[in-house]
Nucleic acid binder design. Sequence first.
DNA 1: AAGATGCACAACCGCATTGTG
DNA 2: ACACAATGCGGTTGTGCATCT
Length: 295
Amino acid sequence: MGRTPCCERKGLKKGPWGPEEDEILINYINKHGHGSWRSLPKLAGLRRCGKSCRLRWTNYLRPDIKRGPFTLDEEKLVIQLHAILGNRWAAIASQLPGRTDNEIKNLWNTHLKKRLLCMGVDPMTHEPFTSGGPTTRPRSSPATRHMAQWESARLEAEARLSKGSLFFNSPPTSVKPDPDFFLRLWNSEVGESFRILNGEAKTDCRSPISQASSSTKCGSVSGVTIDVGPIAAGSSTPKSSRTEDPIMFDASFSSCSNESEDSSDTALQLLLDFPINNDMSFLEDVDTYAKPPQC
DNA sequence: AAGATGCACAACCGCATTGTG
DNA sequence: ACACAATGCGGTTGTGCATCT
């Protein structure tokens, strides 16, 4: 019995949305909320499937969408978060207010990936390519070095995590670290310290977003205002990796046990090892690296 | 000026996960 | 505990626009 395709019904429109459809969708959601996406198109009078409506709303019509080009800081953040989280676009997007996973995915695939490649950094592993790699850029460039530093720190933390699965109360069989840990770390006071340090090192490393509003997600994360997350609460399950959860970190995390203290120290070290002085100047130097070796 | 090519972005598809009866 | 429906997510594709030849 296969799954029935969501748009299998005849008469459902596909392809680009027209302005009148947008208007219908916006009006309907403003008035009633989206409720069940499945039934929304029928109720709103749209000849679209619910999935298409949801996508259109979340990626394009939502009022809080921030349009326009990514700022340098946003790009930096995306790269840093990608190093931590991998292709978990939704999780990355949750750290960039007003940006959608789709948008970030596109940014990554069209710009950042290429740029890293040109720098001699493997966009998937964030490791520098060894000689013979697809780049001609010297291996010891600062950006490359920092990526390598970060990667090794990340690996170290992963190793520690798998070793210390007790920290998360996860079953011994669970060797795979929860990538959300890194996100929580990023959002924790440890991460805040890291950002502050970087902020001191550079005149102002806050993104324009957080400059504009201290209550952005980026800003709010620095408020280690405690929201006991599932991990911190010791109830981590695989399902907890869902990214809709507000990702806040329990400050008591660092004091739950000796082991966790140790983890916290390592975590701090991990973050401090990340590109010192937030040196991602290669991003600013787009022209220098924009053109691939044949790049 | 016209066709070819590349790029950016919106949208779709299918699988995974979660919710519910 | 199970089956099914609903939703979320990531990968991929299609299309329109800009630039190049």
